[in-house]
Amino acid sequence: MQVRTGVCGGARQPEASHPNRYRRRASPVRLHATGLRVSEVAAMVVFALLIINKAGGLIFNRTFAPGLQKLDSNDYLILAGTFHGIHAISRTISPAPPVQPLPGNRRPPTTGIESMESSHFRLTCFQTPTGVKFLLFTSPEQPNTDAVVRRCYEIYGEFVMKNPFYSLEMPVRVEKFDRALGAYLVRP
């Protein structure tokens, strides 16, 4: 499993040259950490999207590919809460050398885990400036997961945040969001 974390601010650079980015290679994980199985699914797919609010509660989850292992809603809540905790830890405890802040400025906050890879899936985490986290589970071959997760954020901004009947931090039950997300991520 590979875990990638990063530091806020500045343009993205190739990993090899970026001093604040590190890759750790552990023994390949055979266990399905997410319960997602790839047996009958095509190689390049988006499996699932989870949205976690800033308190660590799961506010949205949806799967997009057929043939995935079923998780019950309690497991999803545990997964969201656990990831929220690990993400928070990874922001403070990190082997990356600290960035020297400009005089008078605070140290830029680290972003925590950005992606996690195993032989079966890749988890891309995108955190918005307000602390909402988007977790995108894809197959390891799926390219441009950053762009995909950002597009999901845009759709969230359009149909959830602009919806007068949505109350912040609460579970997302917005039909137009579901429809737009389906149109974007479900392969016909």
Partner: peptide, 14 residues
């Protein structure tokens, strides 16, 4: 365009 009506007031049309 951006309005989704919650289920409990599905009759409402903005």
């Amino acid at each position: 365009t951006y309005v989704t009506i919650p289920r409990e007031m599905s009759q409402l049309n903005c």
